[in-house]
Simulated assay, not measured.
Amino acid sequence: MYPTTLTQLSRANPFNAPLFSLQEIEEPKQSLPANGQSRNLAAAAIAEGDSCEFGSRKYLLLCGFGGIISCGTTHAALVPLDLVKCRMQVDPDKYKSIGKGFSLTLKEDGARGLAKGWAPTFIGYSMQGLCKFGFYEMFKIFYSDMLGEENTYLWRTSLYLAASASAEFFADIALAPMEACKVRIQTCPGYANNLRQCAPKMFAEEGVWAFYKGVVPLWMRQIPYTMMKFACFERTVELLYKHVVPKPRADCTKAEQLIVTFTAGYIAGVFCAIVSHPADSVVSVLNKESGSTAVQVLKKLGPKGVWKGLVARIIMIGTLTALQWFIYDSVKVYFRLPRPPPPEMPESLKKKLGLTE
């Protein structure tokens, strides 16, 4: 059977190309092991030491819980830096640098002023983390089953990109209301001091649209960010174990695996910050100014304005992404979730390519 439409689309992905190309691809045959259980990725047998099956409902729920813990806590912890970054984006003449931003905020609002917006940040990014990580694991399994074992290996970067983009689409819908409140609190002095004051006031002035007018710019910012976050992380982990770590992942201790996770997460975070920063600037200004559109804000900022605060965002996102992956992986370790081995070329594909005797 020749490649499906989905396979052809994934081959057109500009971010990745396989090491080999096949003229004809056969659907992998489903074989049953001796115990009669299916080898389907979404329903593998529970391995010794694991708490659940890979791809089971419990597995996906715990992945979602790991997303809540990793995203909610890390974003809340970095609220002071996020506040300064947002103010640099919406008022660059006043907040000309990170240091200037911190000093002015402390002078005008005191130490408590650096924590403005912590509640919507924690709630919003907890909801986003639930959808981001939980749905990513779900879509990764779903798309892998559609592609089959051989194409999953050949097009794994495309798989990571598609699964993360699908997950982030829903995650941003969950995040948008709290993100709008957070930016309004942080960038509009005197508007509201906390979430209890901000949300009712925004609803009274602009209705439900006030909470979702930034969802499209959020998609523009977060979907490329998340695609980079997951695809870059997955491939960096693969390369680290292949070329840097002197032993296979299975032989590494949990602590050693978490160190690899943190390193790969920081590398991915730097790239995430760069690709998503222009849209992040638009979101910050858009949620500050009622009645503005994304196109109007983009014209107002100009080519240089959208890059204001990039250094602060690289520091914030690099640290945040590394911590998120570290916490998420720690949750997996704590709950003894199954950890699939690094991608390996299937034996059937090796035979087709003449790599086996």
Rank of each mutant, 00 (worst) to 15 (best):
residue 290 S to F: 03
residue 152 T to W: 13
residue 82 D to N: 10
residue 41 L to A: 11
residue 65 F to A: 14
residue 68 I to V: 11
residue 222 Q to A: 14
residue 202 M to K: 04
residue 26 E to M: 05
residue 21 S to M: 13
residue 123 I to H: 15
residue 79 V to H: 11
residue 89 Q to S: 09
residue 235 R to T: 12
residue 132 K to A: 15
residue 120 P to V: 02
residue 206 E to N: 10
residue 162 A to D: 04
residue 44 A to D: 11
residue 195 L to F: 11
residue 340 P to H: 12
residue 150 E to I: 04
residue 166 S to P: 07
residue 190 G to T: 09
residue 309 G to A: 04
residue 327 I to P: 01
residue 133 F to V: 15
residue 142 F to E: 04
residue 252 C to S: 13
residue 64 G to F: 02
residue 83 L to A: 11
residue 204 A to N: 14
residue 303 P to F: 01
residue 166 S to D: 01
residue 59 Y to D: 10
residue 308 K to Q: 03
residue 72 G to R: 09
residue 233 F to E: 07
residue 214 G to W: 02
residue 244 V to W: 08
residue 228 M to I: 05
residue 285 V to Y: 07
residue 260 V to W: 04
residue 151 N to W: 10
residue 135 F to S: 12
residue 15 F to N: 09
residue 238 E to R: 12
residue 44 A to E: 14
residue 102 F to W: 04
residue 44 A to I: 05
residue 137 E to T: 10
residue 173 I to C: 07
residue 150 E to A: 07
residue 119 A to T: 08
residue 346 P to M: 06
residue 201 K to R: 08
residue 293 T to H: 06
residue 345 M to D: 06
residue 125 Y to M: 11
residue 194 N to M: 08
residue 319 T to W: 06
residue 250 A to K: 10
residue 239 L to F: 15
residue 86 C to G: 03
residue 314 I to V: 13
residue 294 A to S: 06
residue 168 E to V: 05
residue 38 S to G: 13
residue 116 K to A: 13
residue 343 P to V: 05
residue 261 T to N: 15
residue 88 M to I: 01
residue 197 Q to K: 14
residue 162 A to P: 08
residue 138 M to T: 14
residue 214 G to M: 00
residue 220 M to Y: 06
residue 25 I to G: 06
residue 246 P to Y: 03
residue 261 T to I: 12
residue 193 N to Y: 06
residue 170 F to R: 02
residue 68 I to C: 15
residue 355 L to E: 11
residue 336 R to W: 06
residue 273 A to R: 02
residue 39 R to C: 07
residue 263 T to N: 04
residue 196 R to D: 06
residue 67 G to D: 01
residue 115 A to V: 01
residue 179 E to F: 11
residue 136 Y to S: 15
residue 311 V to Y: 13
residue 326 F to Y: 14
residue 171 A to C: 07
residue 44 A to N: 13
residue 177 P to A: 04
residue 186 Q to K: 06
residue 34 A to R: 12
residue 213 K to S: 05
residue 84 V to L: 06
residue 319 T to D: 03
residue 110 G to R: 01
residue 77 A to H: 07
residue 122 F to I: 14
residue 155 W to L: 08
residue 317 I to T: 14
residue 270 V to C: 12
residue 132 K to Q: 15
residue 343 P to G: 02
residue 170 F to N: 05
residue 219 W to H: 14
residue 236 T to N: 10
residue 12 A to R: 11
residue 274 I to R: 00
residue 99 G to K: 02
residue 194 N to S: 08
residue 196 R to G: 15
residue 249 R to H: 12
residue 246 P to S: 09
residue 321 T to H: 11
residue 51 S to N: 03
